[in-house]
Structures are given as structure tokens and as C-alpha cells.
Nucleic acid binder design. Structure first.
Lengths: 252, 252
DNA sequence: CGCCTGGTTGAGAATCATCAACATCTGTGG
DNA sequence: CCACAGATGTTGATGATTCTCAACCAGGCG
């Protein structure tokens, strides 16, 4: 809160909801596009990126099956990606924080394989894919970077596969907390204290657990003095222990 | 066996182990590269693809952590991708059949995130990535296609996530059998009768189950008359029921 | 021939899901 | 501003699916 307020004062043009932001001065720039682009290339990128698009909590960015047109960089807020199983159950496939790219699953079939929904008020940069393709052809470092982003998504998904396949409820939840913590750190936010933007149901859904189990494990972590919980506000008191639990057998 | 033998007679130059094969006459062509490439472009692709590379059962194509240089198209045989968890356990992340591409996980960090190991005698086409990048820059349809391949890998991984997160042991195994059946069909092989190239351990590892459960479920399917099993030879007797089990709640 | 890996089958244990009751939070309208 | 309703979260008791441990079997290779 304090952080946001101070930013609004000191960096008027970098407010996440300000349309006049550009890739060149975006404070997330080095996260979502950490490439050594020439000035001219950044200008080209700026030209194709469509900003604005403020989403209210619960708004959909796109839905599973919609025609694929764009990928999106999250600028502020949090986006949840999910798909529906045969019987209409939800499977959360990822949470996307500022600086992360969402929508790349749509490329292969020309329609989105997931739905994307704002968990809180959020802003995104829309990047029309056909323009991105053109730019990638023209600017090899852009192509390379986009290949890398997609590859990253693959490895992230594979980590989740491993988590779901091998780890206990406690390990999964510890891993999620650590993951959020690390992603906060990347954005220069607190590594130990944050607000969970998603519901317990979403957490369970993402980690392949029921709400009840999520609730119980979080309570247990709380009692064990590993974390402090106040509804969605979380403080990680013992990062090392949590890491140990998350990586489980790593240690020895 | 019979199929292979007849192919060797009728199509000498299309034998999977024949180095003189080219992308233009590869009988998998339309699977691994289903693009409308111009003749000239196919020639260019041919120039960068390195064939040969016969792998014996157990041979590694690359190992987790190796410097990333190439992606590979499986030409014959089966490749298993896996990563090691903290404590050295294996997590199988995928099985790759002829016509499928493996290694794209290595792009993001310039080193492979998985190890790739031949489950039987296999042949692959090596595609040096920096050459592929150049070709992608020069030939937009090639770039597009490669984006699609990576996106495909993402959606495949997400399907596995859903499977691991929501489905019972029976559902997972039915889904795997159906998946293999479908991939066989794509290669014009039998949809109902095939040899499983992987061990029960690998199956369990892939599906997040123990060997024992895999064995029990397969036995049960056998007793129920859904399949016939003779060690690794599988015949799917009731494809529809299996599909129903795999999609589980889809039906109603 | 016998060892060793891989696979099958059984019995008991453990984790997590399910069912159910209750608490808390949110936001809406009086 | 309070009261209330619906959604969200917590906690408890019970049960099912799957894991673990263990014995045994089969087949391939030296």
C-alpha cells in the first residue's frame, strides 16, 4: 500500500493503470522482456503493444475456445488461467503475476486452450500475435526471446507436473508459497509478507487438493510457527524450513 | 514386425535407419512438419537437419543440464524424457514417438531441463537450434510452425497436469492407453494393438502412480475384458469404454 | 542354469477426500 | 451504519484410494 502510494508520487508515468506507459519506461520491463533490445526495437515493440485494458476482479481476459489473437503481459494484479474438464470442473493451470506472459497456449490451435480471469483489479498489455510474429522475423533477438518465454512456460508446467506427481499436500503448499515469494522478490516486493490474491479453492484446484486440505495445511503451518495467516495476508516466518519442506528430500 | 519388413522391401529409401532419407520424402513428414513449405524451403530444412544418430536402448540423447544445442525429431523408436527431483527420484515428463519433437524445454535456460533416453532402438533427426532460428527468421511459415510446436507442448503438459490433479488411477491409465492409440493412428498404425515401449515403472512414474497400482489396474482392465495383455503387448478390446473411463465424467 | 531385473499379487497403513457442521468475511440493501 | 445473505473458509469425524512393505513369479542374459 505504502509502496504503491509512494510510486504514484515519485513516478507519475509508471502507474500501472496509466496508459501512457511504454515498454521503454515500464518498471517491469526487464522482467517481461529482459532482452537487450536496441532503442529502435523497443520503439517497434511499443508500437504493437496495446495498453489500457483494465480488468475488474472476475473479468475474463479471454475464454477457452476463443479465437487466439494475442498474448498478454500482466502489468498489475493477478490473472488465473484455468481449463474445464469434461464434467465442467475447473483445473487451474497457473497464476500470472506482473511481468509474466499469458496466452501462449493458444498458438498451436489458433484458439485459447485456457480461460484467463482476473483475480483482482488488473492491467495487461495486449500483444497481437501476428504483429509479434512479424517483429520476431525482423528482429532475431525478439524471436529468440519469445522462444525462450515459451520454453519457460514448458519447464514451469513440468515443475508443476512433478509437484503433483510426487509431493504431499504440505510439500505442494510450501512450494506454492515459496514460488510466490520468489516472484515477489523478482519484482522487488517483500519476500516474506504478501497478500494471496487467490482463494483457497483456487489454491487447492491448482495443487490438486481439496479446499479442506489446503485450509488444514495452512493452519498447521501457522501453528508450527512457519507462517502467520490472517485471511489472505501471509507472512513467511521461517523461509528456510518452508524451502526444506518444498524441496522435501533435497536436503542430505 | 511384418509391417517393418514389407516397408523395407517396398520403400528402400524410407527405412528409418537410412541416412539418405530427406524431409521431402520422410514418411513422417506431414506429422513432424505439417507445414505447406515450398520445395525450396524443404531443401533448406534438409540442409540443417542432421540425420543418422541411431540410439540403442538405454542410450541418452542428452542429459538434464547439458548445454542446449538442438531439438530432435524422433524418426523411429521411442524416447523418454525425465527429470530428477531433489532426492534423485525420476519424474517422467513425456514419451516421444516418431514424428514428435523433443528438447524444446532447453531453450529458455540454454541447457536441457530434462534428460532424454531411448526406450528401444531409435533414430532421431537432430535440428541445431541456431540454424533453426535462422531458418525461422528467413521463412515465416517455419517460425509459425515452431511456435505452434512449442505451444502444443504446453497444452500437452497442461493436459497431464489436469490428469494428475483430478483423475483416479484407472482414469490415468485409460487416458495413457488412449493417447498411445491415437498417436499410433496418426502414424497409420493399429489403433487397437501395439507394444508398450516403456516399463510399468515408467508408466507409473509418468502418471504419478506406483508400479503396483499400474500393474493392478492393468490386470483389472484385462479381467474386465477391456484389454488383452501379454507382457508389453496390448490389445484394446473396448476402445469406447476405455475412452469413457479416460474422459471419466464427460458422459452425461 | 541361475541370477537379476521387471512384473504381479496380497495385506496393512497412511494420506487425503468426503460429508457435515460451523465460523467468518463481503458486500448489499434497508 | 447496521443487518443479513451468500460465499468463503475452518475444523472434525469417517472412509476410500493408493502407497508401502513383502513375497513370489517370469523372462532375459551372462
Amino acid at each position: 500500500m505504502v509502496i504503491l502510494a509512494s510510486q504514484e508520487h515519485s513516478e507519475k508515468h509508471v502507474c500501472p493503470h496509466n496508459k501512457e506507459i511504454s515498454c521503454g519506461n515500464c518498471r517491469l520491463g526487464s522482467i517481461c522482456l529482459p532482452i537487450a533490445l536496441e532503442h529502435d526495437d523497443i520503439v517497434k515493440l511499443d508500437e504493437i503493444v496495446q495498453r489500457g485494458h483494465p480488468l475488474q476482479k472476475g473479468d475474463h481476459l479471454y475464454r477457452e475456445g476463443d479465437a487466439f489473437t494475442s498474448v498478454y503481459a500482466v502489468r498489475s494484479g493477478t490473472i488465473k488461467a484455468y481449463r474445464l474438464t469434461g464434467d465442467g470442473q475447473e483445473q487451474v493451470t497457473g497464476f500470472y503475476f506482473p511481468g509474466e506472459i499469458i496466452g501462449m497456449d493458444g498458438i498451436s490451435k489458433d484458439k485459447y486452450a485456457n480461460s484467463a480471469k482476473a483475480l483482482e483489479t488488473s492491467a495487461v498489455c495486449e500483444i497481437p500475435f501476428h504483429r509479434l510474429e512479424e517483429l520476431s522475423t525482423a528482429v532475431p533477438s525478439m524471436q529468440r526471446h519469445f522462444f525462450q518465454l515459451m520454453s519457460q512456460e514448458i519447464t514451469t508446467d513440468q515443475q508443476l507436473i512433478t509437484l503433483l506427481s510426487k509431493n504431499s499436500a504440505e510439500e505442494r503448499i510450501a512450494a506454492l508459497l515459496i514460488s510466490i515469494s520468489a516472484r515477489n522478490a523478482r519484482r522487488k516486493l517483500s519476500r516474506t509478507s504478501f497478500r494471496l490474491p487467490m482463494s483457497r479453492t483456487d489454491i487447492g484446484n491448482f495443487l490438486g487438493l481439496t479446499v479442506e486440505t489446503v485450509s488444514r495445511v495452512i493452519s498447521r503451518f501457522n501453528k508450527q510457527g512457519l507462517i502467520t495467516v490472517e485471511s489472505k495476508e501471509i507472512t513467511l516466518l521461517d523461509l528456510d524450513s518452508l524451502k526444506a519442506i518444498a524441496d522435501s528430500k533435497t536436503e542430505f
